[in-house]
Nucleic acid binder design. Structure first.
Lengths: 343, 343
DNA sequence: TTGAAAGCGGTACCAC
DNA sequence: GTGGTACCGCTTTCAA
């Protein structure tokens, strides 16, 4: 229901004009005389006229809304990204429809389906950990739906992508642990097939080899749902703690994995950083206040959302099919705090 | 753009029927023969037909979308509430449009305006700290827009409301501090006019008087933007620390105020709980991991969102104007941790 | 410079 | 039981 009942034909009647004249006057068409324009525009303003966006959508075949697909919104990284998305979307008169996959491929399919049937103009998404196959997305793109990936991107689909510099983040985190004197650095991460996992892992490995350490696969653990359940993170931790040579530091690759690892270490009464150093990929604003203060790779989440939306809108607004795509890599920042620095 | 091009008239043509027959068959009208229904429904399914929601909206005067107005989404309490909202909205085929006021009355006005012009079917909102005047909302309600408040509600507008048991939360938090041996318990809260402030404050005062303590207004500090800026919380803290008899405990009344207070105490090297006990209203899942672990009043945020949405949908779907309204109070829970317990 | 009319995709009233 | 038609509010030819 629109609570602003006045329509174009109301204006037309009131001014003894036709609906088409009013419509054109409001869109400042060159066909309409300055005098009529003024008349119409003034009347519209006085009566607080707003075009009905639904009628406009139906007519134009555009909905002025964009769909967002994220694993979850109850996570600082993603809520900050969404903040960034909204900041530019609203500015441009678009509204956003947020859906959460909860790391399920099936739910992701359902959400994408629901969104396309909701007539969105474009889609922003970060893949769920369960998603291997992106045929459904490729199909949508082929049908002409503008899609921009962020964070967890697809290699196979050719479109704009916005990611943090995961390689650098992984490299600096690991390098920092090495330089702080840790010798047996483990890595707990998301499933091996996701883009962020591969990039962060590559950074981790490069730092180790650069410093003359061996990369030992026993020290690398994958959580198949990106740490969604505590159980999978606990399993990874248990395996690490059971190794003949127990790791003396952990580099955790995501918000949830990081905080779960911290929690598990607390429960096991393992002292941080004395017995175990810890660095995480984490966007919480509470890092400083954790026990101990958490060394973290911080991602420019807000900026990622902003940039991704700008790129999406550029495709949506483009008059010609866009075929040249770009992957934007945003810098991460390592905040060194107590969890990785021995006294 | 709808990427599922098939429409009712496509089906009609293919089956040599009229559009109206197809429409009725799809809505399982009693007028249509079983045979025709089957024909149509089968064809629709095979061809993956979906009604165009925009056309439906235009025709029915309903958009199947609800507007959300919150101070900010980058806050665990609100992101959990939104999670709850979405869980029921999507289930019922509604999508949600989220807007953030950032605690500004002007932005709240703008958002509400934008939402109503977006043809929403109903609105869920939590007032900004700056909002005294709710005439604009009263006007909308009078025009027939269903509104449900949650968290920070308006007294003057008569509609459904969902809140946490703020009085009980404030009472238990304060009582717990008293029973832990603290003698000079301060309270830092949001502006005095907001509903949550009054309720939590009342609980605080009641606990003090029940235990025979005086209520001293010098120990109660208001942050005019609910702790949005660190500066206002710092000012409150500085004033408290400068009192002739410095408080030995603080009850903080919101997520942001709580974490800012914790941070400020860290910076001032004030030991918690030895020199200062701390209890907060806080929904972070990191409470356990903070330094020290944070005693907190936890609100059932997800449930609040769920309940508010159910109530909103019940108004939206009601065939008759709803005039009987209800305020649902959901229980809070006090999690006692180290920040309020002296060894 | 203005207006009539068609149509976006459905729905619903009214004939047949 | 089925189909014709008008209409939701707006945009866009095309004609006047």
């Amino acid at each position: 229901m629109n609570f602003n009942a006045i329509t174009i034909s109301d204006i037309a009647k009131a001014l003894n004009l036709s609906a088409s004249t009013v419509s054109k006057a409001l869109s400042d068409s060159y066909e309409i005389s300055a005098k009529t324009k003024k008349l119409v525009v003034d009347y519209a303003r006085e009566n607080n006229y707003r075009p009905n966006p639904i009628a406009q959508s139906l007519k134009k075949g555009k909905s002025k809304s964009i769909g967002i697909v994220v694993p979850t919104i109850d996570n600082q990284f993603f809520s900050q990204v969404i903040n960034g998305i909204e900041s530019v979307a609203y500015e441009e008169g678009y509204n956003v429809i947020i859906t959460q996959t909860h790391e399920s491929y099936d739910v992701e399919l359902l959400n994408i389906n629901a969104l396309t049937h909701r007539s969105i103009d474009g889609m922003l998404l970060s893949l769920s950990t369960e998603t291997f196959n992106v045929d459904h997305l490729q199909k949508l793109q082929n049908q002409g739906l503008p899609i921009v990936f962020f964070d967890r991107v697809s290699d196979t689909i050719n479109t704009h992508k916005v990611i943090a510099d995961n390689f650098k983040g992984g490299y600096e985190a690991t390098m920092h642990l090495i330089e702080s004197g840790f010798k047996y650095i483990a890595h707990i991460t998301s499933p091996a097939h996701t883009s962020i996992t591969r990039e962060r892992l590559a950074g981790y490995k490069k730092a180790l080899t650069d410093k003359g350490f061996n990369v030992d696969d026993n020290y690398i653990k994958y959580c198949s749902h990106g740490g969604k359940s505590i159980a999978e993170t606990k399993e990874a931790m248990d395996e690490l703690l059971a190794l003949p040579v127990r790791p003396d530091a952990i580099f955790a690759a995501s918000d949830r994995i990081t905080t779960t690892v911290l929690s598990l270490l607390h429960k096991s009464k393992i002292k941080i950083p004395a017995e175990m150093g810890l660095v995480g990929f984490n966007n919480t604003n509470l890092a400083e206040l954790l026990n101990p203060a958490l060394t973290a790779v911080h991602q420019p989440a807000f900026e990622i959302g902003k940039k991704a939306t700008e790129m999406l809108l550029s495709i949506i607004k483009s008059r010609y099919p866009v075929t040249e795509f770009e992957t934007v890599v945003m810098p991460t920042e390592l905040f060194i705090r107590k969890s990785s620095v021995r006294d």
